[in-house]
């Protein structure tokens, strides 16, 4: 594979006496779908939060396109083209999809109207519908409020939002946790289309069949460290599960990377 797009090396994070990350490593290559697996408490959420700047690790470093970066706030990650879709999606149910997608980064009119803070709703709707069309998000009425929409449609809005703002990486925390079978399939279609745009995707998921269906690579965490790396095409679910639960230890030579 090519050089990594993002690399976390030796991240350590303490919460009081609890060590969430104990020298965790993580790698993302350009344009790939990589799944981050691990049992509860393995440190997946902490790792994701460190990468998107929500928390700051006590030690270790994050390299982005070969350069060390200091993810001191979510804004830093955002400027680098890294967006996060949180598990709760963080949508405002009373706003329409465009309102959600552009929340906090609204498009204003030019000139004096813009100085007064007037929203260019037409342009925001246009870009929203464009993004929906590209991603195949099925929303018939882009001016209806989000509250009446299904779980899959909400997921679509959240992903479309991250795709509009992300140029390099989208981090997705449990994208299928709240969804049924049909809707999960729509989300995997969505993720493939995002990948087709050349954006790398990091998936945190417990849903092993889903991961095997969609991911290119798997990285496994256990007790705050990376303990395994797999190519999906060459791995079996049992193998991955054994490493996840600590039944088997994968050594560096075994990791086919």
């Amino acid at each position: 594979m090519s050089t990594p797009l993002l690399e976390a090396v030796g991240l350590v994070k303490h919460y009081g006496h609890i060590e969430a990350l104990r020298g965790a490593d993580f790698t993302v290559y350009p344009g790939e779908i990589v799944a981050l697996l691990g049992d509860n408490g393995a440190g997946k959420s902490s790792l994701i939060k460190a990468i998107c700047g929500v928390i700051q690790p006590d030690s270790g470093q994050i390299r982005f396109e070969g350069k060390q970066v200091n993810m001191s706030s979510p804004l830093v990650a955002r400027k680098l083209g890294i967006e996060t879709v949180f598990q709760d999606l963080a949508l405002a149910p009373d706003l329409d999809p465009a309102g959600n997608i552009f929340l906090g980064q609204e498009i204003l009119y030019g000139g004096i109207l813009g100085k007064l803070g007037f929203l260019n709703k037409r342009e925001m709707h246009r870009r929203t519908e464009e993004a929906f069309a590209r991603l195949g998000v099925g929303i018939q009425d882009s001016k209806a409020t989000v509250v009446n929409m299904s779980g899959g449609q909400r997921q679509g809005i959240a992903v479309a939002r991250s795709m509009i703002w992300a140029s390099k990486i989208i981090l997705m925390d449990e994208p299928t946790a709240a969804l049924g079978v049909v809707q999960s399939r729509r989300v995997s279609d969505l993720i493939r289309r995002v990948k087709a745009e050349g954006i790398a995707i990091v998936l945190v998921s417990h849903n092993l069949p889903f991961v095997f269906e969609i991911a290119d690579r798997i990285e496994v965490m256990r007790l705050g460290k990376r303990v395994g790396r797999f190519q999906v095409s060459e791995a079996s679910a049992d193998e991955v599960l054994d490493v996840m639960t600590g039944l088997k230890v994968q050594n560096e030579q075994e990791a086919l990377l």
């Binding site: 979510p74 405002a92 706003l95 980064q105």
Partner: peptide, 16 residues
């Protein structure tokens, strides 16, 4: 204003 009333956490994460 509407975003704060609708989902204050979402508004916060959106950088408002």
């Amino acid at each position: 204003c509407a975003a704060v009333g609708s989902n204050i956490e979402a508004a916060r994460r959106a950088g408002i």
